[in-house]
Design a binder for these strands. Sequence first.
DNA 1: AATGAATGAGCGTTCATTCAT
DNA 2: TATGAATGAACGCTCATTCAT
Lengths: 212, 212, 212, 212
Amino acid sequence: MPRQGNKQQRRARVATYEKGQARIEEILDAAADVLINQGYKKLTLRQIAMQAGIKVGNLTYYYRTKEALLKDLLEKILFVYLDEMDRIVEASGDSPENRFVAIIEYLIEDLHTQRTTRFFPELWALANHDTYTAELMDNMYAAERRALRKLIEAIKPQLDERQTRQLALFISCSIEGMTMFVGAGKNQENNLQAMKKLACKSFLQLIEQASP
Amino acid sequence: MPRQGNKQQRRARVATYEKGQARIEEILDAAADVLINQGYKKLTLRQIAMQAGIKVGNLTYYYRTKEALLKDLLEKILFVYLDEMDRIVEASGDSPENRFVAIIEYLIEDLHTQRTTRFFPELWALANHDTYTAELMDNMYAAERRALRKLIEAIKPQLDERQTRQLALFISCSIEGMTMFVGAGKNQENNLQAMKKLACKSFLQLIEQASP
Amino acid sequence: MPRQGNKQQRRARVATYEKGQARIEEILDAAADVLINQGYKKLTLRQIAMQAGIKVGNLTYYYRTKEALLKDLLEKILFVYLDEMDRIVEASGDSPENRFVAIIEYLIEDLHTQRTTRFFPELWALANHDTYTAELMDNMYAAERRALRKLIEAIKPQLDERQTRQLALFISCSIEGMTMFVGAGKNQENNLQAMKKLACKSFLQLIEQASP
Amino acid sequence: MPRQGNKQQRRARVATYEKGQARIEEILDAAADVLINQGYKKLTLRQIAMQAGIKVGNLTYYYRTKEALLKDLLEKILFVYLDEMDRIVEASGDSPENRFVAIIEYLIEDLHTQRTTRFFPELWALANHDTYTAELMDNMYAAERRALRKLIEAIKPQLDERQTRQLALFISCSIEGMTMFVGAGKNQENNLQAMKKLACKSFLQLIEQASP
DNA sequence: AATGAATGAGCGTTCATTCAT
DNA sequence: TATGAATGAACGCTCATTCAT
């Protein structure tokens, strides 16, 4: 997935000038808004155009098909997470344990945002039937696991790669699974902090007691 | 795995004869097929009817609205899991630890079946848009947590209710989160067994080391 | 329009036995009920069958098509009015003026019944596109005018036939026109009595002052 | 006879250009055609679109719902009559009696036009099912009665308001009632002129002999 | 006589997409 | 770039009708 700082190239077929580039960002922001606030079912060109303050005709000038728009939207959203992973793993100056706890807490806090709560279940469902979505999701989760692995390694260098990979996968699964239960508006929402504590404790225990 | 000793009365208002009852099951099976293979976006009356080998008019004879059909479909799907929970929790004659491990292993094995792998992400997405789905899912997961709580209690009776509730929630989240990674056809599928071991070890540790 | 007392033969294709004949009357009564209380739009086979307490399948046993049922319904309803006209005109033992006033008052009172208020506008509209309805309506109104003519003749024997015909037509028009204004539930409903008085006064004046 | 000095703004949300405005008028004309020639039962979006020579999709571009289209259609039709009432009542320079006779003759002549003959029975029937239609019709007839009242007042100033109101209502009823009998193509059509004479004579008599 | 089951046509409506201006 | 206009396909749903039992 090509990334150049924050200036990733969109798929939109046009927009050679600055104004067009800005419009594209407006469109994608509008689409994200609609998806988050009204759900996938209402994510129609009409709604996106209305949210962006333009007409459908103009929207289709930038994106010939809805599919193309959705791809750009998906990339834009996932890019945020990828970026965040990079930043977290590069942050230093503290003990690996503390950094590990920080990342776990960040991830769990994040899945309580409207965006993550509503977006990801849609993406998991989409990934079941759309290989492009599946690929992109895989890439993003691979990046997450890479980040986790680095920290696990720092905490317990004796473990071999297989072990760290499996630990990272297990931790990632555990956290993602919370989305449907303690995500924004979900009925176990009030247990979010308890889950954070249990997660940190459990994951650290698991790492430290792993036999090399 | 049909709920035993339960007449499985569907919501459909008609179908008093055997032929009609059979047709209703065919319709629900067809709907499940479509949902699994094509996603809820394509879960239309026309698709369901086609899959069932009948015409839309006949489908609406059994289910006057799509909503009614979806309700029956959901209940049919979730009852299977509810039923399983009941049976597992009632199984006895072994140590609580062993029963706990058995249930964890069962749940993880199950999410590797095609049906579970594909159904649940669809249902989570659906629950994002439809409150009835959300409610039914909540009920099912509540039953799962009840089952887990009973075993946790048996393993460590000193814990208070709040603690067992939170432990059950954490464990349930962890397991559900695996669906998108080690489910049938997912790209970490080969790590299923490793996840089972890690899960059992980690969860038991967490329970035993919980301070009352 | 064949009439044999009140035992007119229905168009229904079957019903050779008594039970069947009774059922047909039930069906027509049910249809009239639905038409009056729910309007033409909801006059569906489903509704009629439900009102009659039978199933649609059985309804179509008696009436192969909806059109056939509607024809019978139309005849049945119009027959009531025809019958009434006959009776009124045959009533005697009073002065022609009094009998004339009685019939005018009866007609105006009648158009304040739910049935007449709701039924006739439907029929006028139907008669615009359906010649059979148009014919039946013409027959009924011709009978009404015949009745009126006989009374006009009795009141003022000097008038020639052309004059009595025109007077009868004018009077009939005037009365029918009230339906949409002082019919049941219409917004000039409270002026019904005033219209009755004006009508009687005006019509009698017109007859008496007609120059032969 | 379009309402003069009135921009005839339709309810349609779009159509900012001339082409769109023209299309809207075409649509309404098409709808009127269908209503007149086929009745409101066949007044479907598909029929209207076909008559207008466009596709249903385009029709719904101009009118998002059938209800909105019907509202515009009704207003367009009724405005013509409302406008005519205004003009007639404002015409002056003659004796009130002559103006009264003129308006009666105009109204009766008008109901012999194809449009009036076929439209109004449909509208009365529609008003039976649809409150908005009922309201609009009421407004139009109220305007007609206002016009008649002014003339009755001018002819016989001694009458109180209640009396003029009732006279106007009675006259309006009488005229409307002729539609189904002497309207265009109806079987008493040839008595139209006789009805005109009887109506004028009868109504004037009624007004003049009313006791204050 | 009566019913359940099934069909096909049509309904109003939504939507992504195309195109001329 | 941007918009209004137009299209075609599909949606959920209603309904009259047919038919086997």
